[in-house]
Amino acid sequence: MSPARRPFGDGPPVSAFTLGTMRALESPAQMEAVLRAALGAGINHLETAPAYGPAEPFLGQALRHLQREGLEPEGGWLITSKILPGCDLPSGQEQLRASLRRLGVPRLHGLAVHGLNTPEHLAWVQHGPGGELLRWALDNTLVSQVGFTSHGSPGLIAEALATGRFRFCALHVHLFDQTCLPVARSALERGIGVLAISPADKGGRLYDPPPELLADCAPFHPLELAYRFLLEQGISTLSLGAAMPADLVWAERWDGGALASDGSNRAALEEALERLRQAAAERLGGERCGQCHACLPCPSGVPIPALLRLRNLAVGHGMVGYAEERYNLIGRAGHWWETRNAAACNTCGACLPRCPHELAIPALLADTHRRLAAAPRRRLWG
């Protein structure tokens, strides 16, 4: 049976799971073991970046070893790498050439702007050297299609997609953070590929779920429920950052048909999602933030919905570890994440009359800070 493949922009179809290479960095042997497991799991799409330390040279070495054995997916490996925004044209050209040398390939399936997170990044593409770089890469057949990754707002992402320059995007669209789901659906309707960034880890550390979440998602494992939800939404491919072959078990189950959808398990999925919503509603009671964003803009620049979403997860599903991790990145990750936490609220009350649920937002923000503020943790990269 041929592996399942899904449309991805203008390029060849990709596997439902994409191997992210940001974790198998201890040695070339580790990368090779993970790549062999990815091949066995039916994966044909690989995602890497110069910013991931030795990922590109390790991956290039692993690809050469498997090639000597005649091991590759049907149609070959599809490789996406990235380039950070802000460079001038000559340095961008050299960065792309260097990626190709490290990977040992003549061209990339996809080249993504790595972190199109701010209006300045978008201007770099629309009116600056970024646009020249992307055109040069396409015109010289060094890449098959161009896209972007983004940690930015849905509005910024929509602006980027509206330029018509991009044929795929990588977004934080997750079961437990559906903020970008509408813009992802819009992209898919226009034939633009959508990769979900790290639904296992950034989507909630679902590989290590708390007891409450395990119970809330039953009969599914939280990871399975999250993966099923995203694939049912039509998301093109889900990134899976594997550090060892065993991390690819869910990709194996998908390729083997264990996660395939039909009418009966679609109904079971909807029932589980409804139980999940009800469980959170019961624990949160009248303090549940509905994520409508009506409270914005905050005069102090507090990202109220993003912070109360973390409180929803901590209180509603017991996801305290994940919520703490994300909360304590605030202000420490530059344009990759929020810059102000709940302590920036000055209790001006401007948000109160806007909230359709009549939440005591300043008090909930203070409670969020008490619950989640802790010693910061190191980011995976950067």
Results as ranks from 00 to 15, higher is better:
8 F>P: 12
196 A>G: 07
287 E>W: 13
223 L>N: 02
19 L>I: 10
372 L>D: 08
337 W>N: 08
110 G>I: 00
324 E>T: 09
173 V>T: 14
9 G>Q: 12
191 G>E: 06
207 Y>R: 14
297 P>F: 02
209 P>F: 10
18 T>Q: 08
245 P>H: 01
343 A>G: 09
39 L>R: 03
251 A>T: 04
346 N>C: 08
73 P>N: 02
318 G>K: 12
119 P>E: 11
192 I>V: 14
338 E>N: 13
345 C>R: 06
230 L>R: 06
313 L>Q: 13
118 T>H: 05
322 Y>W: 08
221 H>M: 03
276 L>D: 07
156 L>E: 11
188 L>S: 02
221 H>V: 03
135 R>P: 00
241 G>R: 01
374 A>K: 12
143 V>R: 01
68 R>C: 01
291 Q>A: 10
48 T>N: 00
75 G>F: 08
35 L>G: 00
6 R>Y: 15
284 L>D: 15
34 V>A: 00
338 E>F: 14
380 L>N: 11
21 T>W: 01
162 A>C: 03
24 A>G: 06
6 R>D: 02
136 W>I: 01
64 R>H: 05
26 E>M: 03
318 G>I: 08
76 G>I: 06
319 M>D: 03
14 V>E: 04
282 E>Q: 15
215 A>T: 09
126 Q>E: 15
168 F>M: 15
266 R>W: 00
95 Q>V: 07
213 L>K: 02
238 L>F: 07
306 A>C: 09
118 T>Y: 03
285 G>A: 12
94 E>C: 04
378 R>N: 10
240 L>M: 06
207 Y>F: 15
92 G>V: 09
162 A>M: 05
127 H>K: 09
271 E>M: 10
344 A>D: 09
147 G>D: 10
172 H>M: 07
39 L>C: 03
352 L>V: 14
268 A>H: 03
360 A>K: 15
159 E>P: 01
357 H>C: 06
302 V>D: 08
300 S>F: 14
343 A>I: 06
308 L>C: 09
6 R>K: 15
41 A>D: 00
239 S>M: 08
13 P>S: 12
175 L>Q: 09
299 P>G: 03
262 D>H: 12
31 M>F: 02
312 N>D: 06
4 A>F: 13
271 E>I: 07
281 A>L: 14
118 T>K: 02
170 A>K: 11
220 F>W: 11
341 N>K: 01
194 V>Y: 04
155 G>P: 00
91 S>R: 14
288 R>F: 10
